[in-house]
Every structure is written in structure tokens, then in C-alpha cells.
Nucleic acid binder design. Sequence first.
DNA 1: GTATTGACAGACG
DNA 2: GCGTCTGCCAATA
Length: 114
Amino acid sequence: MAINQQKAQQIWQTVCSIPKGKVASYGQIADLAGLPGRARMVGKALGYAPEDMNVPWFRVLRSNGQLAFPSGSESAEKQKGLLQEEGVVVLNNRVKLKQFGWQPELTELLSLKY
DNA sequence: GTATTGACAGACG
DNA sequence: GCGTCTGCCAATA
């Protein structure tokens, strides 16, 4: 049961809303998804994220812009590759949030509501 | 019901 | 920028 899948759904939706070439932190996703302070839940939700949804979990990073996975890990490398493919520059398992950090605009938020 | 863990965040040094 | 500690909440044992 994982928490209400509704929330997980919302999380996935939010993650899917991240514009290409940008990245968001767990806290950011959690907040936008309606789970303030439950950043951990986001990670778990992404854990269940079905591939059918094509959830760009690779665009979700830590608050500091560091990848959620340890360097050298398959997922981390994959994530890096995908991000770079999207145009995001990843160095040393890190992304410059100052430049690639997703700053949700009203239009973006509106697409999540309802 | 209690203890441990986790794809985390923020504060400190 | 990095390591450590604390706080938060849910899942798992």
C-alpha cells in the first residue's frame, strides 16, 4: 500500500511536468505534489513508478543538485547520460541547480491543478 | 506496537 | 563543497 497511490500519481505527474533540460529536487517535487516535508515519500513513490508512465525520475535530484544515486552506480550513470542528452550538464554526479534548477512557473503549476 | 531503514532536507562545522 | 546530526514521514521487519 504505499501511501495513497493518488499521491504517488500526483508525484509522478509533477515529475512528468518537469520541463526538458531542467531538474527539480525531491523537496520541490514533494511540495508541488502536496507532500510538504515528505521528500522521502517522493523517492519511494519514484521507486514504484511504472515504466509505462515514462516518468523522468532522472530529472529528480537532491536539494543540493547532487544525484540521488552513488557515483558509479548503473542508475546514476544512466541518469547522467539521460540528463546530458536532455541538455543538462552533469559534472561529478552533480548538476548546477543555479542554472538547471527548475523554477516552476504559474503555467506549469496550472497544468498540475485539476 | 516498537525498532530500523530509506532514490531526503536543513542546519552546523 | 563535504561530513555529521537532527527532523519528518512512511514502509518494512
